[in-house]
């Protein structure tokens, strides 16, 4: 019985497909560590000069202590394998900037970025799918042209400019949005459970903190959404247009099915694979590309951490961010790949 169950499970096409994707992802993670390590160490410049003050960098005893403390006195190959070995224990090294474990730093920064990235991707998908579908159905009509201009504007306006302009008008001029940061200064940070302030505030039963955290999400999420919506609307429009030309959609329309059923069950289901790919990529870039938005809104996320680590040549910090973003991309891609398998039987059977 056990034997049979195992055979069935092992030979299930979806599980085999999933297994292949997971193994590929693990190999890719190792590849990411190697590439990040090589790139980080190729940067000309000495971390000692970048991390220590002018005077401290001139004192051989302090420099020797610094190099020994961060393992910079060993050959690069040894440094790499030590890094890999530590990685297996979940140890990403100690940041030369914050003097704290990189893993702990990232664990603190990631939820800040996730909070705005998740908000932005959810809103973008909802708005982008609606607008893209409308644009496709009204191809060539005024509303299609208007949506094209709007989505192009969202894509081409520089993010930092948009962020500053929105902050100036919505916070300073109109008093609709709150000031920068994740919470107003007269609120205490809620006890950390998830690191997402909105969730943590709810778990702590602090409704006023929850609403304050939620209101602080408004502007950064809005800026990120405006950009991502532009991208998604264009992709959804193209994908829907392609599907609308398919025979099975024509057949569905011809047999008089209501438009809602045609859109939901035929068109969007068919368009979901290319759209899913773009959503995955967009989410990845939201996680790694929020430096400017984080900087304007004083948001202590991954982008700010990456900038700080890079400007101080904090090699463990830079490696940590590189690895985290690499893993996040892989994870998102893995989920997208698995969703392909669920949505489209041809993928898992191939």
């Amino acid at each position: 019985m056990g034997e049979t169950a195992r055979t069935v499970r092992a030979s299930h096409p979806f599980l085999r497909y999933a297994g292949r994707r997971v193994i590929t992802s693990i190999l890719l993670v190792i590849g990411v560590t190697l590439v990040t390590f090589i790139l980080t160490n190729l940067v000309p410049g000495d971390p000692v000069a970048a991390s220590l003050g002018q005077r401290a960098a001139e004192d051989p005893a302090i420099v020797a202590h610094f190099r020994a403390e961060y393992g910079l006195d060993k050959p690069l190959v040894v440094q790499y394998f030590t890094y890999l070995g530590n990685l297996l224990h979940g140890n990403l090294g100690i940041s030369t900037t914050t003097h704290d474990a990189v893993a702990a730093d990232l664990a603190q920064a990631l939820p800040a970025t996730l909070e705005i990235a998740i908000g932005a991707i959810v809103l973008s998908v909802v708005i982008g799918v609606v607008l893209g579908t409308v644009a496709a159905y009204r191809r060539g009509k005024v509303s299609d042209h208007v949506l094209r201009v709007v989505s192009l504007a969202g894509l081409s306006v520089p993010t930092f400019w948009l962020a500053l302009a929105l902050y100036y008008f919505l916070y300073f001029k109109l008093h609709i949005a709150p000031g920068s940061g994740r919470l107003s200064s007269d609120f205490n940070t809620p006890h950390t459970i998830t690191g997402l302030y909105t969730i943590d505030a709810l778990l702590a039963g602090q409704l006023d903190t929850f609403f304050d955290a939620l209101s602080h999400l408004f502007l950064p999420v809005l800026v990120l959404t405006l950009y991502t919506v532009g991208l998604l609307t264009r992709f959804v429009r193209t994908a829907v247009l392609e599907i609308l030309d398919q025979d099975y959609v024509r057949a569905a329309r011809a047999k008089g099915l209501p438009t809602r059923t045609v859109v939901w069950s035929y068109v969007l289901r068919g368009a979901s694979i290319p759209v899913l790919t773009v959503v995955g990529l967009a989410f990845g870039s939201l996680l790694s590309g929020t430096v400017l938005v984080e900087s304007i809104f004083s948001w202590p996320g991954i982008g700010s951490y990456a900038y700080q680590a890079a400007s101080h040549l904090d090699l463990p910090g830079v490696m940590g961010v590189g690895l985290l973003i690499g893993v996040m991309y892989l994870l998102v891609n893995l989920i997208v790949d698995l969703l392909y398998g669920i949505l489209d039987p041809r993928v898992r059977l191939a």
């Binding site: 500053l164 100036y168 300073f172 940061g181 200064s185 304007i296």
Partner: peptide, 20 residues
């Protein structure tokens, strides 16, 4: 006293808007 990490351009808007 709360000392917040804020970049220059945002600082200007914050102090004008009253959040700093």
């Amino acid at each position: 006293v709360v000392i917040q990490n804020v970049k220059g351009p945002t600082q200007k808007i914050n102090v004008q808007g009253g959040s700093a």
